[in-house]
Design a protein around this nucleic acid. Structure first.
Length: 592
RNA sequence: CGGGGCGUAGCGCAGCCUGGUAGCGCACCUGCCUUGGGCGCAGGGGGUCGCGUGUUCAAAUCACGCCGCCCCGACCA
């Protein structure tokens, strides 16, 4: 490829609305152009990266036995009504009507359509297992699109769906996909972690997120540096403290804490550590009759230590709360606690309240909590003496750095990640809703066991840049770089020798199957170098009259600060075979 | 959805408060010059100032409405 024939459009300044570095660099490098909120044009340079990402995904998906098909972007609402998602999903699901006023959706994912295909086509156990995937445009009407391509509304995703005859088979499919994902992310050349994730209503433990490690990541990843344990923060278990509850040593005292409504303020006022305080959160659950009218409301008091945060996902799994909960209203709070929010606590309740203590809180003694009286807290509160033991003790908080690892093999650490892949066991959720059955050996219909597996194709670009960039621009891993080598001749248009040498090298690299681009634009060297560094091409070859006189060219890796000199002709080797899972190294020898 | 901010040339911005000729840098075009880190000089093209209504002799500027975009927040009392 010659640069003059290709399309290169770089900017010195990033558009003002680009906040995160990947967004800024992709705009500056001319890879994407914004068309609307969360909607982008993929310009030629960016599309080349997308195509390379897709090629690796296809290669490994096919190797893992998945079969590619293509399902429509616009899908009839009927299928989504079958599973109830047409009504259940929020405005994130884009609904459209056609000229006949019929309902359609723009797909955010394709469980319904693929299940529809499966129930029609897969009729015998002999046809299972089967894994269908596609790489397709998705649309999610995010309430707030941001971070450029990383949280756009329109994006490209690879989604795969496995169909098995039983749960054991589905587990096997899941493992195959996990293994394929590891190969895929290894080939991308990115630092990532597979973390256990919450399975929501499905249950079981078969859900993993593939997170690209980056300081700017939206997700907190919990892992144990001394073991294999890794989970996202929704799931990571906070184990009960090893030390038993201490004895009560203080008397219960109602202490004035005027204007100090937060645990941090109270602790500071009383000169105590935040870990001696208890935070009160009030939830409510409603029982409905068949007409949907509230017949009974239960108020819950959740207690976590002052320095801990409640974990809504964990709370949502508790008996009595798992069918949905809300935060209590102020009138409800006043009726049960006799106090407005700010000084609430578990002692001296006006009406029965279900008390759930976090495991840590249940082990505390001589703690500080709200006194259910304005501007007052209790100090020296103790379970069993000043208030009954809690109705329920459970893990209801987020883990924090330094907590013991649930596997008992060290302490937990936290780092940030960008979720770029997710593997998930679905069970029979969709096959049941859509009656997707097959005939087993006994001739009886059975529900298909499903799994789904996604990779955010366009998000990979953002994640790769967040993880790999410097002051000069992007640093693509070789396997997904738009070009592997940029040939930069100095004086291409005025030196016959330079032109001949550059053309020859270009032809030779192309013949070897190397994605090389020859910069024949006639730019000055500084402009040329700055462009390719911004774009992030892994290797650059510079040819000049000066060097050619000595029979030398310069080769420089994008991460290197100095060029190495190589004698002509260069000892070129073909790039590692496509099938190699580690085709991430450069194609040119970097030093003689 | 709540709060804040912005909309002036392809990009980055000034001008608006205090109404009267629309300006700067980058990019772009022409010529000369230069050629190892985004050259220099000279000349040039390009903007219904987001849209609409109103106030006024006169509106980018003031008022009202709409649209678009960006940021922060969304229940931890």
């Amino acid at each position: 490829m010659k640069a003059s024939q290709f399309f290169i459009s770089t900017l010195k300044e990033a558009p003002a609305d680009a906040e995160v570095v990947s967004h800024q660099l992709m705009m500056r490098a001319g890879m994407i152009k914004r068309l609307g909120a969360g909607i982008y044009n993929y310009m030629p340079m960016g599309l080349r990266v997308i195509r390379k990402v897709e090629a690796i995904i296809r290669d490994e998906m096919n190797r893992a036995g998945a079969v590619e098909l293509l399902m429509p972007v616009v899908q009839p609402a009927e299928l989504w009504q079958e599973t109830g998602r047409f009504e259940k999903m929020g405005p994130e699901l884009m609904r459209v009507k056609d000229r006949h006023d019929r309902d359609f959706i723009i797909q955010p994912t394709s469980e319904e359509v693929v299940t529809d295909i499966a129930r029609q086509e897969l009729r015998s156990y002999k046809q299972l297992p089967k894994n269908f995937y596609h790489i397709q445009t998705k649309f999610r009407d995010e309430r707030r699109p941001r971070f450029g391509i990383m949280r756009g509304r329109e994006f490209t995703m690879k989604d795969a769906y496995s169909f098995d005859r039983d749960a054991a088979g589905a587990a096997k499919s899941y493992e195959q996909m996990s293994a394929a994902y590891k190969r895929i992310f290894d080939r991308f050349g990115l630092t990532y972690r597979a973390v256990a994730a919450d399975t929501g209503a499905i249950g079981g433990d078969l859900s993993h997120e593939f997170q690209v490690i980056a300081q700017t990541g939206e997700d907190a990843i919990i892992y144990c540096p001394t073991s294999d344990y890794a989970a996202n923060i929704e799931l990571a278990e906070a184990v009960a403290p090893a030390t038993p509850r201490g004895p009560a040593t203080q008397a219960l005292v109602k202490t004035p804490t005027p204007g100090k409504a937060t645990c941090a303020d109270v602790a500071a006022l009383l000169g105590l550590d935040l870990t001696q305080t208890v935070k009160s959160l009030v939830l409510a659950t409603d029982e409905l009759d068949e007409r949907g009218v509230v017949v009974k409301t239960t108020v819950w008091l959740l207690l976590v230590r002052g320095d801990h945060d409640m974990n809504e996902v964990k709370v949502g799994k508790l008996e009595g709360l798992k069918n949905g909960f809300r935060f209590a209203t102020v009138p409800e709070i006043e009726a049960h606690f006799g106090c407005k929010p700010g000084y609430l606590g578990p002692i001296g309740l006006l009406q029965p309240v279900k008390i759930v203590a976090d495991r840590t809180v249940a082990q505390m003694s001589d703690f500080v909590c709200g006194a259910n009286a304005w501007d007052h807290h209790y100090t020296g509160a103790n379970w069993g003496r000043d208030l009954p033991e809690p109705d329920l003790v459970a893990d209801i908080r987020n883990v924090v750095e330094g907590d013991p690892s649930p596997d008992g093999k060290g302490v937990l650490a936290i780092e940030r990640g960008i979720e770029v892949g997710h593997v998930f066991y679905l069970g029979t959720k969709y096959s049941k809703a859509m009656n997707a059955t097959f005939l087993d050996e006994t001739g009886k219909p059975a529900l298909m066991e499903m799994g789904c597996y996604g990779i955010g194709v366009t998000r990979i670009l953002g994640a790769a840049i967040e993880q790999n960039h410097d002051a000069r621009g992007i640093i693509w891993p070789a396997s997904i770089a738009p070009f592997q080598v940029a040939i930069c001749p100095i004086g291409y248009d005025r030196s016959a020798e330079v032109k001949a040498a550059a053309d020859a090298l270009h032809a030779e690299l192309l013949a070897l199957g190397v994605d090389a681009i020859l910069d024949d634009r006639g730019e000055r060297p500084g402009a040329m170098f700055a462009d390719w560094e911004l774009i992030g091409v892994p290797q650059r070859v510079v040819l000049s009259d000066r060097g050619l006189k000595e029979g030398l060219v310069e080769v420089q890796g994008r991460r290197e600060t100095e060029a190495g000199k190589l004698a002509l002709p260069m000892p070129l080797s073909p790039p590692s075979r496509k099938s190699s899972p580690m085709a991430v190294s450069g194609v040119l020898p970097l030093s003689p």
